[in-house]
Amino acid sequence: MLLGAHISISKGYEHAVKEALSIEANTLQFFTRNPRGSAAKALNPVDINKMRELIKQTGFGPLVAHAPYTLNLASSKPEAREFSIRVLREDLERMSIVGASYMVLHPGSHAGLGLEKGIEKISSALKDVVTGNEKVMVLLELMAGSGTEVGYTFEQLYEIMDRTGNPDAFGVCFDTCHALGAGYDVIDSLDKVLLEFDKILGLSKLKVIHLNDSKFLLGSRKDRHANLGEGKLGLETIKNIINHPELKDKPFLLETPGGMENYKKEIKMLKQLAEN
């Protein structure tokens, strides 16, 4: 079972993997750069080599990078969109050096332009950046649909990928909190939700799961993470998700409140909930 959390790389990649191992995680997610800015820490080849050796020794799972929140491929402002394209291109190259398998990306916000225009702008930008020959796969994250977010339905994600002309180059990150907010009933109809995902996108597209409880109800269109078992999803739903035959072999990544101590507690709990 692949269990991990979002961990800072401020002290280096080797340190981040060591931190993950200290909480009994075997995969992790990290930001490619300052999540709310543009600064990117220079890569240290010595640190990366040490991390790779540690991964080899421990059988550590895939590294999952997360693009900064400042990227908005749907922006109507040329400078903002150009910035997003440049950073995405740079980070795909940087993450290939690090050895990340995936890079999670929030599709973008249309800011009043409308969904159709937003989808058009996002797919056009991705077409410019992603060739399909990258070592790192871009994963579009399923969003909750807050404000003018694009990508809160399976159909929207399909449209974005399809319009790039190279849909096989992309995958999906399924966030359990976002899914509930977007109106997908993973509590009472998990099988139905996954069947719909398979029909529209294909379950092979689902590469990573952000395992978060939600502070808000089904269809709220709100994105507020809660600790596992303390939100509207509840522990029974979390148990069903991690043990579902179509999901149980995917990397599960925590983005819940409380930091490392909480991650350690929740990973221990998830291992107890897992059916052997």
Rank of each mutant, 00 (worst) to 15 (best):
K215D: 00
S123G: 12
K127Y: 06
I9F: 04
G171Y: 01
H110D: 15
D249E: 15
R33M: 15
N49R: 15
I7V: 10
E261K: 10
L195W: 07
T70R: 09
T70P: 10
Y69R: 09
M161V: 03
E120A: 12
A80S: 15
R52D: 02
Y184K: 00
S214N: 11
A111H: 13
D191S: 05
A226Q: 14
G37T: 13
R33C: 11
I97R: 12
A74S: 11
R86N: 14
Q57W: 02
A65N: 09
R94W: 05
A20R: 10
Q29H: 01
L3V: 03
G145N: 07
D188Y: 13
I9G: 03
Y69E: 01
S38Q: 14
G231M: 08
I7C: 10
P257S: 08
M51E: 12
I122C: 10
V138K: 00
T32I: 00
H244F: 02
L194T: 07
F174M: 02
F60G: 02
I200T: 13
E275P: 00
V46A: 08
K264P: 12
K205A: 11
P45H: 05
G229V: 13
E141P: 10
L21R: 10
G61K: 01
K18E: 15
D185E: 07
S84G: 09
S96N: 02
D168G: 15
V172L: 03
V193F: 08
S220N: 10
L253A: 00
M137Q: 15
R224E: 00
K127W: 03
G61A: 04
L253V: 11
N212C: 07
D47Q: 08
I267V: 12
S124A: 10
G145W: 06
E246A: 14
Y13D: 10
S124R: 15
N133S: 12
G132R: 06
V138D: 06
G171S: 05
F197P: 00
G151W: 03
M137H: 02
L115Y: 04
M95G: 04
M51F: 07
L2H: 14
V150E: 11
K135E: 14
G183E: 08
